[in-house]
Write a protein that binds this DNA or RNA. Structure first.
Length: 274
DNA sequence: CGCTTTGTTGAAAT
DNA sequence: TATTTCAACAAAGC
């Protein structure tokens, strides 16, 4: 499940491989045409033909290939992967889009669940309008968090999953950050103290930074690179996917419930609801 | 079969 | 009326 650290891992992996490369054409399989949102392969080809990749950036969970005068933005959703080696015969049915470069090599977008999307746009206004601050940027401060959420009656987990508040947090890292902060996922935002906002802020930063340093979390299906490299943050998980196991910081047992329609893991002892 | 996953959408509830 | 929650959806694997 690629969240910010996984997308950043992919970005760093792809950057040296794709920088300066020139697009020739875009392609979609005949039986599935939704991966390129809103445009046909032919239209996309017209838009990107001859354009070179100036830089690779990331915003939240979005990976952006910046061309001279436009952008090709990828959202991996749950199972999207980007690579350059020719896919095996049996994985070809999961290729939802591919691009040909000027040296006749390719960029493949493989997506088993088919929720991933690629968007062409002339600017990134649409992205900036929908996303909140980057958790590792200077704009992300305890004051921002409290000002944005302090009055809300929403549960803290739902609020943190909202991409317009902090961009890039998903199910894994919200559960982990809340555990580190000692906050119950169903805690109402309005009941969180100044001290806890401070703690939550640092918990988010520390968790995301540590996950990036370990190339993300390979829980079920996240791999990056041509060699199917896995992220190493799994070993650092305190609650996610550890249902019934002892909490790593106290004697509690991790429980799994559902909050905001998402599987939610927490330790009832160090994350009490008050 | 039913549950899981992300993010958007629109309806329903508070 | 505004905020918040919820169900549906898109798709396939286990």
């Amino acid at each position: 499940m690629p969240e910010l650290p996984e997308v950043e891992t992919v970005r760093r992996h792809l950057e040296p491989l794709l920088l300066g490369r020139r697009f020739v054409s875009a392609h979609l399989p005949t039986d599935y045409q939704k991966a390129l949102s809103g445009i046909s392969a032919k239209e996309c080809t017209t838009l990107i033909y001859g354009k070179t990749i100036q830089s690779l950036t990331r915003r939240g969970k979005y990976l952006i290939l910046n061309l001279e005068d436009s952008h090709l933005t990828f959202h991996l959703r749950m199972t999207g992967r980007i690579f350059q080696t020719e896919p095996e015969e049996q994985e070809k049915k999961h290729i939802t889009a591919w691009f040909t470069l000027s040296d006749n090599s390719h960029i493949y977008f493989k997506d088993v669940r088919k929720f991933g999307r690629i968007l062409w746009s002339s600017d990134l206004k649409w992205l900036e309008e929908k996303l909140g601050v980057e958790p590792l940027s200077a704009e992300f401060t305890p004051e921002y968090l409290e000002a944005k959420l302090g009055e809300k009656k929403q549960r803290i987990k739902s609020a943190l999953l909202d991409q317009s508040v902090v961009a890039g947090l998903g199910n894994i890292y919200v559960d982990e950050a809340l555990h580190l902060a000692g906050l119950h996922p169903e805690q109402s935002c309005s009941g969180i103290s100044r001290a806890k906002w401070l703690k939550l802020h640092s918990s988010i930063v520390v968790t995301i930074q540590a996950a990036i340093d370990l190339n993300g979390t390979t829980f079920q299906s996240f791999y990056f690179g041509e060699e199917e490299t896995s992220g190493e943050f799994v070993s650092q998980l305190n609650v996610f996917g550890r249902t019934g196991k002892p909490c790593k910081t106290c004697h509690g047992l991790v429980v799994k419930t559902k909050v905001a329609q998402r599987g939610t893991h927490y330790c009832p002892v160090c994350q009490p609801l008050r």
